[in-house]
């Protein structure tokens, strides 16, 4: 897989547009998912993921190959998401309706079309809730938590994506999951 990716990157660098299509195909789900988990809105996620790929294409000569192409791509995507979240802030309140709830609509549509067993509905509610809690995390914890648990990256990789030392990444993961645990507990109790 790595050699295929490197070969595609080389082809794009030498001006082969079509080769970029291969790279988009390989990474589109991962990058879209990361954007969705970061911003909690499908349309925004699509927009951001597309922009990430366009930027990667335009700046492909800046990718040196000293780390994995995916790391570079993830870095572009997380930075775009963080920028977007920061711009959103003025009219973005922690208590306001959470954009992450859009996922709930998606799930409800599926549920309407084909009634689900009760346990599955509960399971989905739990996941929607988790996405909402992830959305409430400060972005620095959110990024670390998502890369670690949703993208299953190693601490070293996350450290390259976030451009932070490994111990800092670790601390953010610990604090992030601690915060999620607290939020989760509160809801479990109120049920």
């Amino acid at each position: 897989m790595e050699s295929l990716i490197n070969s595609l990157v080389t082809q794009v660098k030498s001006g082969n547009r079509e080769a970029f299509e291969g790279l988009v195909e390989i990474y589109k789900d991962k990058i879209y998912r990361l954007c969705y988990r970061m911003v909690g809105d499908r349309h925004e996620a699509e927009d951001l993921a597309q922009e990430a790929f366009v930027r990667a294409f335009v700046n492909i000569d800046k990718y040196s190959g000293s780390y994995k192409f995916s790391t570079w791509l993830y870095r572009i995507a997380t930075n775009l998401c963080i920028d977007r979240l920061r711009k959103r802030k003025p009219d973005y309140s922690m208590d306001a309706e959470i954009p992450g709830t859009e996922g709930a609509t998606l799930y409800s549509q599926v549920a309407d079309a084909d009634p689900l067993p009760e346990e599955e509905v509960e399971e989905r509610e739990k996941r929607d809730h988790l996405q909402q809690e992830i959305m409430k995390l400060p972005e620095k914890y959110r990024t670390a938590i998502l890369l670690k648990y949703i993208e299953d990256m190693s601490l070293e990789e996350i450290s390259s994506v976030m451009d932070l030392p490994v111990p800092t990444v670790k601390t953010r993961i610990h604090r992030g999951r601690e915060a999620l645990k607290k939020a989760y507990k509160k809801v479990a109790k109120s049920r």
């Binding site: 589109k28 879209y32 998912r33 597309q50 335009v58 996941r127 949703i150 999620l180 645990k181 989760y184």
Partner: peptide
């Protein structure tokens, strides 16, 4: 919490994603 996060239902890119990206690329690199 960790288990829930790992199990979170898969999210996939919308239809025509690649096509759209390819259309958005500047003509001459």
């Amino acid at each position: 919490i960790i288990f829930e996060m790992k199990e979170a239902s898969p999210v996939v890119a919308p239809a025509h994603f690649t096509e759209n990206v390819m259309k958005m690329l500047p003509e001459v690199k």
